[in-house]
Design a protein around this nucleic acid. Structure first.
Lengths: 111, 111
DNA sequence: CAGTATCCTGCACGATACTG
DNA sequence: CAGTATCGTGCAGGATACTG
């Protein structure tokens, strides 16, 4: 299944947020961390590694002191924005319907 | 975050497969089960319940003996197909690039 | 600053068995 | 056939501490 890698990334909440965060251009490690709201260092590192491995982000190290590391979406990563943002679009337009459906369902099945 | 419900569904491998499976029309419980390849009864039930709650699928019981239960995408569920299939499209078109990126990455970072 | 290393916990999920 | 109930467990992921 070739879509597995994609789904495992898109399914990963953090990866999606990172794609969104990097949409405007490169960011440093801690900038991404802040942009993601609440993400542990561990998960951020892991997510970035995975996305780098998949070719979605590039990592550029500037060995100053203190070190500076910039992450940026690759062309491949940018092309992912299309589908991902389409999904976001859909979520935005339909979340009211979803909430209504949930409320109706829960009213039918109390407890 | 309104997109949370959507992402938690799209992130769920099984839910995606179910949407795909139901794209052609209603299916019975075990038909979906077979269509999903290998999914446990438990996960199928849980996924279907969740999707029903979100208003993505409808459940129609025909109380014969043995009982017959058909699941079908609601209009909301069908509208989800657009973004989801766009993602599938993207995955299909780019999986070669992803595999290449992974191979290159792994070559650079052995072990 | 940008990580790595370790420990610890919950719960996501599979396997199995029972029921209307 | 279409579920519910129960048990066992692997590992995703948070918290914390240390390093170049």
């Amino acid at each position: 299944m070739p879509a597995k890698a994609v789904l495992s990334r898109v399914g990963d909440k953090w990866s999606v947020l990172i794609v969104i965060a990097l949409r405007g251009g490169p960011l440093r490690f801690n900038e991404i961390k802040r942009a993601c709201g609440t993400i542990s260092q561990r998960m951020l590192t892991l997510s970035l590694r995975g996305m780098e491995r998949d070719g979605f982000v590039s990592r550029k190290v500037t060995p100053t002191n203190p070190p500076r590391v910039d992450y940026e979406l690759t062309p491949l990563g940018h092309s992912l924005r299309g589908p991902v943002e389409a999904l976001g679009q859909w979520a935005y337009q339909n979340h009211a319907a979803i909430l209504a459906a949930q409320a109706a369902f829960d009213a039918r099945a109390p407890e």
